[in-house]
Each structure stands twice: as C-alpha cells, then as structure tokens.
Amino acid sequence: MTRTTSTKRRAALIAVAPLLALSISACADSSTNTTGEVEADCTPAHPDLTTVTEGTLTVAADVSLPYVDVDDSTGELGGVDGLVLNQIAEMECLTITNATIHGSTAIGSVQQGQSDLAAGGWYWTKAHGKVLGQTDTVYYDFTAVASQDGQYSSLDDLDGLTVGVTQGSLYVEELQDVFGADNVKQYETLTQAMTDLTNGRIDATIAGSGETGYQLSQLDGTTLSMQPIEADDRLEASLSYGQVNFPHTLGNDSLTTALDEDIATLREDGTVQDALDTYGLTDEANFSGN
C-alpha cells in the first residue's frame, strides 16, 4: 500500500468503484441543485477564474455534518464548508451547483472534471495532492476518541481493545502498527462505527472532533462521549491538526489561486470563524490549529 504520512479524514464509499464514472453521472443527475443569484453589475474578485461550467461553481457535496449539508427545501449548501463556499461563490459572482455525492465518488467527480471541487471536511494529504489540487487550510479539525462515558483518551487506554475508524483515515496505518490490524476496524462511515460502538462490537472510535461531536449529538440518551486524544508520537494526528480544505481540479491554477485568496479573505473577515461557531466547532484550535 502506498504509505501516506499526511492527513486524511476519510473516504466514505458508496458507489461501486469500477463503475465510478457511470455512477458519478447517475448521482449527479439525481440530486443537483443550483442556488444563488448574481447581480448584473457584479464584479468578480478573480475575473480570470475558470470553472467546469461558466458562471457556476460546481460542488461535489459529500454531505456530512458539521462539514457539509444541503437544505432539502432550498437546495442551499450548509455546514461549515457550505457556508464558506456560498461566500466564495458570491465573491466570484458565481451561482453554486451542488450535487450530493458521497465519499470517494465526490473525489471521483472532481477527478473526472464534472465538479470544480469537493466539500465535506476533506483533510490536506499528500495522496490527494497526486490527483487533486488542494487549497490552503480553511479551518482545522482535531482528533477525538469516542467511547462509553468518554473513558478513553490515550493510545495506552486503548491497548488490547477494538477501535473503529473510517476508511482512508490517516489513523489507519499507524493504529494498525500500534494495536495490530485485527484491532482496528475500518468502516465506510463514522455512523456505522458509532452504531457498532453503541452495540458494543467495538470499544472506541477515533475520528475528527467535528464529525464525532455531531454524530454523538444525534444519539438520544447515549452514554457515549468523546475526549480529545492525548498527544502520542505513535499517532501523528494526535500531534497536529487536520487541515480542512477544498480538493479541486488538478491543474486549474486560476481556481487554486481564487480559492486560496478567497479563503484568506474569509478567514480574515471572520466569515470562517462564524461558520465554525454556527456548527459548534467553537474550540479556538478549530480556527487557529493551535
């Protein structure tokens, strides 16, 4: 397996991958929304910006709160990433076309040139960099352990137990080295891992704090809770924060430049912080990475 040393939150998998291109078309057609209005006299922040479809920013929305949501009635993007993208579209005088496309299929959609970018709490990784453009960091996510009564917070606590992670997360290889492959169970989605945690099939989950917190908030009367993982040299993600960004079309330099500069503007003017606050990512570290 290609070894990655950087971060990656997950790549939830829905479509049958060998038929990826076909399924992308099917998914995109089935749940596509176009939102936003552009004034006739709108001046884009980056006039030379090119997108897949002129005048619109096409977003492969990997719906997963608190990162991305799509409003059922209006079709508007929500979630932290969604709120930021709405602002970017406004700055660039673009409408947003979003298609709800899950996990790897969202990345496939960008690779295939059907979407400009993917949104869904994607971490910056070296592996992504080989096939996608990656923007500067929009915000940060830290690693959390969920367990019954939040009883575990360190790798030593979890020794000999079964830990659930999402497929493709940066934790997999390192955790397998620490606990052994049999004790690290990989799930397509964190929801599945949480279900098994609730049912006692596994002892803990390790995932991003944002998604873990959101998942726990959806479990009525649960005795599960999460703790930030304690720093440990054996797990790189415990030492640094996941850098959430927008994976986008590789080689579209005008898009990279526009996104990077717009992100900088939105971090500066408080838009990103507001979006984080709106979705409960209120830890200072979520913004600063420290």
């Binding site: 790549a11 998998l13 790897s104 493709g168 169970k185 397509e188 098994d196």
Partner: peptide
Amino acid sequence: VAEPELLNAAYNIGSITFQYL
C-alpha cells in the same frame, strides 16, 4: 459490515491512494 474481506481491502487502499480504478 466492515469485514476485512477482499473488496474492503480494495476500498481501504483506494480511500488512501485515490487510485480506485
């Protein structure tokens, strides 16, 4: 159900490398 059989192994690799095809 996240059992580590062949397809799951392929998914795991794909989700890290993004070389799904």
